[in-house]
């Protein structure tokens, strides 16, 4: 603190911080992408009841849901080099960005796995039976019948996860990454106007979340486009 509060500085800081919004969004986008892939991979053993793998996935999901993201960050940051040192791969000089991507992907993967599993189980089994009875292959059944219905159920949860993940990225700076929050920390160190920086950061995060929410709401309407007519017929 120390210095007098100066509201005009907030407007001055916003453009500086906005330049680093790209890094934040990059972390978000990449980790969501990998998270979805991990999520699909982790949902399969539970959906098809594959022994051993199913138990492993359960432990993975339970651990991720049972520990704070900041602990996961530290575990990957300190643990991965130690783990890879055992097979003589040195990654201690790797950019912090990769550790952040790995952590958030693993973390999102567990959440997505649960969302996918729940959504697919929410589609009645009768739908699959009906698809088979008219001669669809399991692949067609999944892509044409189950998936379109499951995505409708899953979408609100996916949207919440993306927004939650965006907010979680604000902790990536703890392992020294230069995203928006990391840049904010250096601004505080150089200007000593902590409050103004945090207000500027809050405004940016809030606006991004509002835009995401708006976009998701439009898409949700799109995925529900057949629900409305069905209700009006009934």
């Amino acid at each position: 603190m120390g210095k007098v509060f100066d509201p005009s500085l907030i407007l001055e800081f916003i453009p500086t911080l906005l330049k680093y919004l790209g890094v934040t969004l990059e972390i978000l986008a990449v980790s969501i992408l990998f998270g979805v892939l991990i999520g699909i991979g982790a949902a399969i053993p539970k959906l098809f009841n594959i022994p051993v793998l199913k138990q492993l996935v359960t432990i993975y999901i339970s651990f991720i849901r049972g520990t704070p993201i900041i602990i996961q960050l530290f575990l990957v940051y300190y643990g991965l080099p130690a783990l890879l040192a055992l097979i003589h791969i040195d990654i201690t000089r790797m950019d912090a960005f990769f550790f952040v991507i790995i952590t958030y992907s693993i973390s999102n993967g567990a959440i997505f796995a649960e969302i996918f599993r729940g959504a697919i189980n929410a589609v009645e089994f009768g739908q699959t039976e009906a698809a088979y009875s008219i001669g669809m292959t399991p692949f067609h059944n999944f892509t044409r019948i189950v998936f379109p219905q499951a995505i409708r159920v899953a979408f609100p949860n996916i949207a919440n996860t993306v927004i939650g993940s965006l907010k979680d990225t604000s902790l990536a700076f703890t392992i020294g990454i230069m995203d928006m929050m990391g840049r904010g920390e250096t601004l505080i160190a150089s200007s000593a106007h902590a409050l103004e920086v945090y207000i500027a950061l809050s405004v940016i995060y809030y606006v991004v979340v509002l835009i995401l929410e708006k976009g998701f709401r439009l898409f949700e309407k799109y995925t529900n486009r057949y629900q409305g007519t069905e209700a009006s017929v009934a």
């Binding site: 927004i163 907010k167 979680d168 604000s170 902790l171 929050m181 902590a194 409050l195 945090y198 207000i199 950061l201 809050s202 995060y205 809030y206 979340v209 509002l210 929410e213």
Partner: peptide
């Protein structure tokens, strides 16, 4: 709900 909790603590 739209901002990270770390912001609330810092603000």
């Amino acid at each position: 709900r739209g901002t990270p909790a770390i912001m609330h603590i810092m603000l």
